[in-house]
């Protein structure tokens, strides 16, 4: 038996909206630690890793580990039937082929119950090695979203070069219209951590990435006020959105090679 009660349906809506365009179906792995998910996009260039720790739910019950194969697009549509502040309760029996979703209004005067069919998903689980990154940049998530949008839509760029030095982080593109760059400097004051740009750097690093993936990752912006970019030469970029202290959505993106 699995049961997880989330105070706000809104969080699950935001998570699904953040990942459903990149991966359309995935296995939700349920264990006593919480709910996790890992999935690659169809071209095997990027990977999503989700963790919702059990302490983010009240209650959370998992008698034995379960793998729930879910069509994320369908689940996102179903979640739209919940109001943002509805209490979400997910339940599944062991060996069940359905996941039950219950939405309860805060005043407890409306109860919606849905049964979602599960599917068998044959997915590869990838081992992600622990990495010491050359540079970790934390910035407001809205700023990251804005930069990705502007460099994509404004210049028509396909690839973005991200160069991190002590001075700051520079995003450059060359596109159909011309070329451009946006540089963010480290902010002096850290009074408001969510509004700061903080660079933790062991050595300068420059990498090239497909901009359209970064724009897709930015759909997770509503999940967190800040985002971190972790970069090392010759390894995938990690874009992480933390959900308070109860979990994260991480996106991994393979770099491009300069010819």
């Amino acid at each position: 038996m699995f049961e997880a009660r989330l105070a706000q349906s809104n969080l699950m809506k935001k998570i699904l909206d953040a990942i459903k365009d990149l991966i359309t179906e995935a296995n939700l792995e349920i264990s006593s630690g919480g709910i996790s998910l890992q999935g690659m996009d169809s071209s095997h260039v990027s990977l999503v890793a989700l963790l919702m720790r059990s302490d983010g739910f009240s209650p959370f019950r998992c008698d034995r580990n379960l793998t729930l194969g879910v069509n994320l697009q369908a689940m996102a549509k179903l979640m739209k039937c919940a109001s943002n502040d509805d209490i979400l309760t997910m339940t599944a029996e062991d060996n069940s082929d359905t996941l039950n979703l219950q939405f309860e209004s805060p005043a407890q005067d409306k109860l919606s119950e849905f049964e979602m069919k599960l599917m068998d998903i044959d997915s590869e689980h990838l081992g992600i090695p622990e990495t010491e990154y050359d540079a970790v940049i934390r910035m407001p998530s809205s700023e990251f979203q804005r930069i990705c949008r502007d460099l994509g839509a404004g210049i028509g760029g396909e690839s973005v070069t991200i160069a991190c030095t002590k001075e700051g982080v520079k995003f450059s593109v060359t596109g159909s219209v011309g070329s451009g760059s946006i540089t963010l400097k480290q902010t002096g004051s850290v009074d408001k951590p969510a509004e700061s740009v903080v660079i933790n750097m062991a050595q300068p690093v420059t990498l090239i990435f497909a901009l359209r993936y970064l724009n897709s990752f930015a759909k997770a912006t509503p999940l967190s006020e800040s985002v971190s970019l972790s970069m090392s030469r010759e390894v995938p970029l990690v874009v992480e959105y933390k959900m308070n202290d109860t979990g994260y959505v991480r996106f991994y993106l393979a770099p491009k090679l300069e010819d």
């Binding site: 689980h125 990838l126 081992g127 690839s159 995938p236 770099p255 010819d259």
Partner: peptide, 14 residues
Amino acid sequence: KSQQRNLLSFFKAV
């Protein structure tokens, strides 16, 4: 032009 790397060349299936 730059060439897109595949994620599977970095992470192994477990």
